[in-house]
Design a protein around this nucleic acid. Sequence first.
DNA 1: CGACATACGTGAATTGGTTACATAAGTGGA
DNA 2: TCCACTTATGTAACCAATTCACGTATGTCG
Lengths: 365, 365
Amino acid sequence: MTELRPGDASLLRKVNTKVTLSALRRAGVATLTQLGRVTGLSRQTVEAVLDELGERGYVREVPPDEGVMGRPARRFGFRADAGYVVGVEVGGDAIVAALADLNGEVIAWERAEISGDAAAHERLEAAERTALACVDGAGVAHRRVWTVAAGTSGIVDRTGRVSLSITLPGWTGVDLAGLAGRWFGCTALAANDANLAALAEHWRGSAQHAADVVYVLIGHRAGAGILIGGRLHPGRTGAAGEIGTLRQVGWEDAARELVKDASAAEVFEAALGGDRDAVRRVDRYAENLAIGASALVLAIDPDLLVLGGGYARAGAVLLEPLRRHLAELCVSAPEVVASTFGDEGVAIGAVRLALDHAEREILGL
Amino acid sequence: MTELRPGDASLLRKVNTKVTLSALRRAGVATLTQLGRVTGLSRQTVEAVLDELGERGYVREVPPDEGVMGRPARRFGFRADAGYVVGVEVGGDAIVAALADLNGEVIAWERAEISGDAAAHERLEAAERTALACVDGAGVAHRRVWTVAAGTSGIVDRTGRVSLSITLPGWTGVDLAGLAGRWFGCTALAANDANLAALAEHWRGSAQHAADVVYVLIGHRAGAGILIGGRLHPGRTGAAGEIGTLRQVGWEDAARELVKDASAAEVFEAALGGDRDAVRRVDRYAENLAIGASALVLAIDPDLLVLGGGYARAGAVLLEPLRRHLAELCVSAPEVVASTFGDEGVAIGAVRLALDHAEREILGL
DNA sequence: CGACATACGTGAATTGGTTACATAAGTGGA
DNA sequence: TCCACTTATGTAACCAATTCACGTATGTCG
C-alpha cells in the first residue's frame, strides 16, 4: 500500500529530479533561475539535476534568448523526442493508432477499418499493421518506441490479457499485452477501452479537474471506466464498471431497442429535428442508460460523469434527458458532460497509459 | 493529486522517522540494531531518530534484556500512552464509545442504549455523555485525548456534517464533527458508519489482505462502505456506496419483508432449524441483498465483500444464499465473508480514523 | 579470569542541498 | 565609446542526514 522504504540521500535527488523535470515540461523551455523559482529549489540544485538529465539525453540546451536585459541565461528544453510511445485502440470496427513523443504530443495517427466479424488473428494482424504503419509513416525507428499500450472492449486483466469479450469473436483469452510487446520489442500494456477513454478525459479533456470520474462509453454496447483519485481503477479482475451485465440495469437491450428500425444517427437526427417518436425513443434510451449510470454514481459518488463513445456525438439531445433521469435516481447527481475526444479518446488514453510507464523509466524505476 | 514538492534534507529525516516508528510499533520493544536491520537504516540513523522522538515524548527507553550474549543493548518502546483517541458510534438504538491508546489498543468501552425516536439533541447529549464516561472511567485526562472520530448512519460530508439521514429524526444537518470537537476540545472527524466498519475490517478484521473492499452493513436498513487501495472512499458528497436508494435495487423493502411478522433473529433462527418458510424468506432477502451488492461489485470489482451489521450474526444461513445469488449476478464474484467485529466495528473503525489523524500529528503535519 | 559476543561511541567520508558573494556578459543611454 | 545597470554564472563555505570503519565498553560462558 504505502511505500515504507527508508531513504538515503539519493532519494532527495529523485524527488527533485521529478519536480524539476515536470516544471521544465510544463514550461517548455526555461532558464535555471526560472526553474529554481517555480520548483522552490536553488539554482545550483536545478543545474545539477539538469546536468544529469542532459547526460542521459532527456534535456538539451537551446540557444539563449536575445535582446533581454542582463547576461543572457542558458535555456533548457525537455527532449520530447528522446523516445516515443504508441497508443492503440483495437476496436470492433476500427483500429486506431497514435504515435506520441514523450510530451504526449501526438505525432502521427493511423486508422484502419475492420469487420466486426473478423477473427482474432486478423484483428491482431490489422492492429500490428496499423501500429507499424503509424510509426513508419512518421519516420521513427522502431527501437525508439519505448512503450505500447492497447485498449480494447471487454475485460482485460492485470497482465493485459483479454479475459472476457462478448462482442469480438475469438477475442476472449487473447494475450493482448504480450502480443503487442512484440510489435516493437518493448514493454506493452493493455486495458479496457472505457478505462482508457476516462484517462484521456482526465489528462486533456473534460475531466481535467475531477479526481473521481465515471466515464460511460456508449455505442453498439455500453461500458464504463472509472478513475479514482485521477488514477485508473481497473478492479481485481479488470472488470470494474462492467455494470452493463446486471440484468436489472438493461444496458444490454437499451441500444438494441434504440436502433430497432433505423440507425442510431438517424434516430438522434430525427430527435434533434423534433420528431415526437424519435424524441421518445431517445428519452427511453437515456432512461435505461441512467439506471446503469446511477448504479455507478451511487456506488462511486464521483465528481463527474463523462459520456463518450459513438453515440455521444448526439450531444445535448441525449445529454439533457440523461441528466434529467439521473437526477431523479440519485440523491445528488454529479455534473454530466460530453467527452471532449471523439473516436480518438481510447487511443489517447492508451498513449497516456504508455507515457506513465515510460516516465517511470526516465525517473529510474 | 501527487505531491510535487521539492525536498531538502529534512525530508529524509521525515521518511526515516516514519519507517523507524512504524518498525518500532510493530516490534513493540526493540534495540537499535534490530531496528536498523528491519528498516534498512544504519544504527546511527535509528539512534538519531529515536533521540528526537524520545525528546518529543513518543519513545521511551526500557530496561535492557538480561542473560543474553554480549553487551546488553538499550531497548526502546513506543509510548502508546503519549496520547489517546476516541471512536464513537452514534447509532439508531445505541451509542458505542471506545477509548484507545496510540497503538490502537482499546483501553475502555462504554455503551448506552437510546431510543430510535430520540431527538437529535438527546442523541448528541447521549453521545457526549457516553464518550466522556468512557474516558473518565479509564482515568484519562481530557486533554490527553488527541482526536475524536464519530460514525453514524446517513450521508456525512467531507466537513463531518450529516447532510442526509433518513432513519434518525432531526439528524439531517447536524454538524457532528464540529460538535464532537467540543467534547474534549480537540479535532474531531465524522464519517458514515458503513465506511468506518469497512476500515475496521481492513485494519484488524477479515479484510486485512484486501485492497479494495465493499462492506455491506445490514440491519433495519442496509448501507455500504467502500475502501479503495485500503483507504476510505467517501466520494464527492460522502454518499459513495449508498446504492440502497436506487429503486431497482430494492434494499428499502428487503428488510421490511424479512421481518413482516417476526423479528429478524427469529426468522434466522427458524431458518437455521430448517423451517421451510423461514429458509425461503431468508433466501429471498439474500437475493434482494445480492442485487444491490452486485451493483457495487460490478462497479468496483473489489477484492472482497464483507457482510456486517446486526443481521450478519445470522452467519452461514445468510452468507451461503448471498454467495449463490451474487455468483449468478456477477461475471466474477469476489470472496464473501462475514465481518469479524460485531456491533463494535463502527467504533473500532472510528478509532482507526482518529488514529490516522493523530499519527499525522506525530510525524509533523 | 580470559575468550567471546554484542552493543556503543566517535570521527571521517559522501551525498545533496543552501547561502553568499565575486565575476561574467549582455543592454541601454550619455 | 564608455559606463551604469541588470541578470546569470562560478565558486567557496557551510549544513543536514546518512553511512562506514574502527576502537571501546560491557555483558556471558567456560
